[in-house]
Write a protein that binds this DNA or RNA. Structure first.
Lengths: 161, 161
DNA sequence: CTGCGTCACTTGAAGCGTCAAGTGATCGGT
DNA sequence: ACCGATCACTTGACGCTTCAAGTGACGCAG
């Protein structure tokens, strides 16, 4: 805006960015609101429960869980403490290596997830999948992978051709 | 997961959703981090300054500003108080109707924005525009508009064919 | 012109996330 | 066998957002 003319956005890029950035703000807010109202969980808490339910023994190390839920270890620690308070999760030190902590989904936590999942999936479907053509859904996957790849080259396999 | 088989996601939808939802979390975090480090602003504060700088007289009503910055009035009120503390913005009651409050960008706020904008735009470009093909950028616009349209039918003009 | 409702905010408290510092377990070199 | 470094968390304080309640200005019915 002042220095030697930085590469600005073209008009069409700007249009795309306006729509995209608004969506980037509003879609997570809408998904969070649905989960909060219907299940009393936020997106991150839901992801934690979902990741645990898919894991063998419904158990994962905190550090693995943090990666799967796309959050920091610190955030996870606070959240697991909360979820433990609700009886959805238990923590126990790993017997093999005392540095690790295993988080495991309780039966109550599993039921909570099973109750919340259909509504959440339905909401994802109605906000994202239903309005898009099948090719757009696939494009969205490729676009997301490319953007992820730039931020974290190791994470996203370069399946995005 | 338990009740009469809700419409689940297909394998390809699930792949798309995994990539998309990870991107939905990580891209805003990356953009926020850049703004915070380089300018000491978050995305919302930046949007507030940017919206004001584009407005006639560099002035907007709080309620208009809230819509442009995609946030609640309450959030805006707190943020404008902060920005006022830094001298980037001033507030004054609207002379015509005492219920309205006008927020206006100070010269200092304008300079702050002018200093921050190139780096921010460059980051948007490198994370979003550069990794995508031109057709993908346009697809991203259409996809975003469709998703926005479902959440808020009035807002997004149905330009998404 | 007076009260009641509405509008456009503002405020305070509570919740959630981040950051930096702390804790305890284990590894690796000597 | 010891001691410092590293690892895997945990914790507390602080900052930002949200939510609900409050404030003051204006519109309107009687």
């Amino acid at each position: 805006m002042n220095k030697d003319e930085p590469r600005w956005l073209s008009a069409s890029e700007l249009d795309a960015w306006k729509a995209f950035s608004a969506m980037l703000i509003k879609l997570p807010a809408a998904l969070d609101a649905q989960l909060r109202n219907d299940a009393g969980l936020n997106q991150f808490e839901y992801l934690v429960l979902a990741a645990l339910s898919d894991a063998p023994e419904r158990t994962l190390r905190m550090s693995e869980l943090a990666v799967l839920a796309n959050g920091s270890l610190s955030r996870l620690s606070h959240v697991v403490k909360r979820l433990e308070g609700h009886g959805y999760v238990r923590r126990e030190p790993c017997p093999d290596d005392g540095r690790y902590t295993n988080a495991l989904l309780t039966e109550q936590g599993y039921r909570k997830l099973a109750d919340s999942a259909p509504g959440h999936v339905q909401h994802v479907r109605s906000l994202v999948m239903d309005p898009l053509e099948p090719e757009q859904i696939d494009q969205l996957r490729l676009i997301s992978l490319r953007i992820l790849h730039v931020m974290d080259p190791d994470l996203a396999w370069p399946d995005c051709h």
